[in-house]
Structure formats: C-alpha cells, structure tokens
C-alpha cells in the first residue's frame, strides 16, 4: 500500500480513517481532501472511525478534524481509536471487531419491514434507511435500501444496500444465493452456479471495489 498520511479503508465494522503519525492537523486535512478526491465516491452519510497509531494530535485538533469531516464531507464520526504508538503500526489497522461491537450499536435507525416474498418483477425501495424482508427475494425481484438489507429467507434476486453511497451498509440473508449484489457503487456477481452454503451469510464492501461475503 502506498504510504499516504491518511487512508480510508473498509473493515468488518465499517470504514476506518487511518492517520499516520507525525503530521500537523493542516497536513492531515489536506491529505483527507486528496484521499477523498482520489476515491471519487459519495461519502455523505457514511459513518467512519478515526484510527491513529500515536497520540500526536491535541484534543482541539481532533475536535477540529471531527467537525471538518462532518461539515465538509457530511460524514459521521462514530469513534476514535488512538494507539499509544509503541506497538506495531498495523495493530489498529489489522484489528477485526465483531459486528456487535459497532459503534452504531443501539442507535435507532429508520427501517422498513416487508412481510412478504419479493417475487420476479417486484421491487422494494427504501432509500431512507434499512430494509428487512420476512420472506425471500426471488430471481427477478429487486430490493434496495439506503442502509442495510436483511432477508430472513433466501436472497435469490438482486439487492442494493447503501444505495446513497453508504459503504458501511451490509446485506444479510439466511440463504445468500443472489443474482447480483450491490453495496454503494460496488457491484458483484457470484460465480456461476453457486449453490447455497446452508448457513446465514453477510456481504459487506471490501477495499478496491469488491464485496466480501462471509459467514454471519
């Protein structure tokens, strides 16, 4: 990975903004601007955690950085993680947190509940929040949500989570055998003839345009 002062990366619990030590706050803000420009992706509404490998910025600088992210980019800072700087530099980066440890835990979000199967030709859109389907999404059916999508049955059709660009959105299905998955503007298509694995799975945006699917 090319060393940049600031790197935005996706992890199991969502996006992290990793800041490398030994820079002043003005350099950091400039690096953030460049990094976001390079990504060329809508970041408004995206929740991010700031990771720092050393306590190099003052409280005031951090507060400034937080306001900057919220006001200029419309992002939401959900947490701050500062390592003491003595450990190896990947310590914070490499850490994998379980889903339950998300900083969004307990937050009330707008969610639409659909109590039926979405059949071929039917669509369900909920740009304002999350979507829960008490049924299947059949081939030819399409569901999309501004936030997460949870299918309490088989997802055999297409699903688009984070339709407004929220890359921390996830897609969960008890049986994940989709025609196509989309998170933000990442699109993925399972390899041909993929069979059900028989356990619930979760799909989330990884780095570099890929969608990671793993056991829930």
């Amino acid at each position: 990975m090319a060393k940049s002062i600031v790197v935005l990366r996706a992890y199991q619990d969502g996006l992290h903004l990793n800041i490398t030590p030994t820079f002043s706050v003005t350099e950091v803000t400039e690096a953030i601007r460049k990094e976001f420009e390079r990504m060329n992706q809508p970041l408004a509404g995206v929740s991010v955690q700031i990771d720092m490998n050393a306590p190099l910025l003052t409280e005031a600088d951090l507060a400034y950085l937080k306001t900057e992210l919220q006001d200029t980019y419309g992002m939401e800072v959900r947490g701050l993680n500062i390592a003491d700087g003595t450990g190896d530099s990947t310590g914070v980066l490499g850490e994998k947190r379980p889903l339950a440890a998300r900083a969004e835990r307990g937050r009330i979000e707008k969610t639409r509940v659909v109590r039926e199967t979405i059949r071929s030709g039917q669509t369900e859109d909920f740009p304002e929040g999350n979507l829960i389907i008490y049924g299947d999404v059949n081939p030819g059916g399409e569901v999309s949500a501004g936030g997460d999508i949870v299918v309490l049955g088989a997802l055999r059709g297409s699903a688009h989570a984070g339709m407004n660009g929220k890359l921390s959105s996830v897609i969960i299905a008890m049986n994940l055998v989709p025609l196509q998955l989309q998170i933000g503007n990442y699109i993925s298509r399972p390899s041909w003839g993929q069979k059900s694995r028989g356990y619930p799975e979760i799909a989330r945006a990884g780095t570099e345009d890929i969608i990671i699917v793993e056991e829930l």
Partner: peptide, 16 residues
Amino acid sequence: DVSAIRDADRITGLLQ
C-alpha cells in the same frame, strides 16, 4: 425449467 419458474413467480406476484 428456470424460465418457466421465473414467469410463474412473476404471475404469482400479480395474482397475489
């Protein structure tokens, strides 16, 4: 066959 099943699914949605 998959195409007939897909169409049956579509028509079922309309009937419902």
